[in-house]
Nucleic acid binder design. Sequence first.
DNA 1: ATCCAGGAAGTCG
DNA 2: CGACTTCATGGA
Length: 278
Amino acid sequence: MIYSVLNDKITVYDTSQFNIEQILNSGQIFRYSGDGKNFKIIAKNTICHLKYDMGSVIIKSSNVDFAVNFFDLCKDYGPIKQKLRENNFLDRAISFGEGIRILKQDPLETIISFIISANNNIPRIKGILNRLCEYLGEDLGEEDKAFPTLDALASENTDFYKKIGAGYRAEYIVKTVAMIKSGFNLDLYRTDTAEARKELMRLYGVGNKVADCILLFAYNKGDVFPVDTWCKRIYRDMGLPESQSCKHMSNALSDIFGENSGIAQQYLYYYYRENKII
DNA sequence: ATCCAGGAAGTCG
DNA sequence: CGACTTCATGGA
């Protein structure tokens, strides 16, 4: 066990598998802030404060059970990293981002967030999501807003989503929210990856890459390798047979890394993006 | 000004 | 099936 709980406080002892900045900057989550010492994540309707203290990570939350699940604290990344290091290509990336963890985010929030992420950059994605929550999210105090509920999202039209800067994705959001509101089943935790991907891709604005991000960041499916513009460079540098298709590259990479594809992708994505390897 | 960003949908062949 | 085009927006 890498953590302990006392009242509203979680102490994570093993910082070699929990680095706050690395987790926040690995492109899986957009609603966070920090001044270098104290950090805050708002996930769904729960605020988590994070900081380092005496060589441990301290997490404070009004909902500790939520936080333990959200940060997936029962998972030990030690053996996973050890196995992935057998692949030479991953060695530097793992050393660089060894404290990355994959979060278990809310499906609705992840779906909307990654629809917005399509052909977009991270600062803009953050801005759009912050405006979305500012307008539609429940007030959590401390000037913080929750991610909007399904009903709140469904109460707005395309004009609203354009107004907050979603651009042409506004229509995708409206249609997808309507599908979910009319009964689309979001309980895909026990559905196998291929079937869950197929189901998610029925949603407007959800293609292969966005579906893989949802599978990985909300449903904790480890056997997917989302391929974006950065991962195309990773694929290129691994010396694999040339390909133009993101879908083909994703399949090839997940064949290589198997159940650990998702975390392998996170180490590599973070390494490439932080070091601006183009 | 042109290009790029955690791409997807629509159309065409 | 694959290739090609279009889709907002803001920073570099």
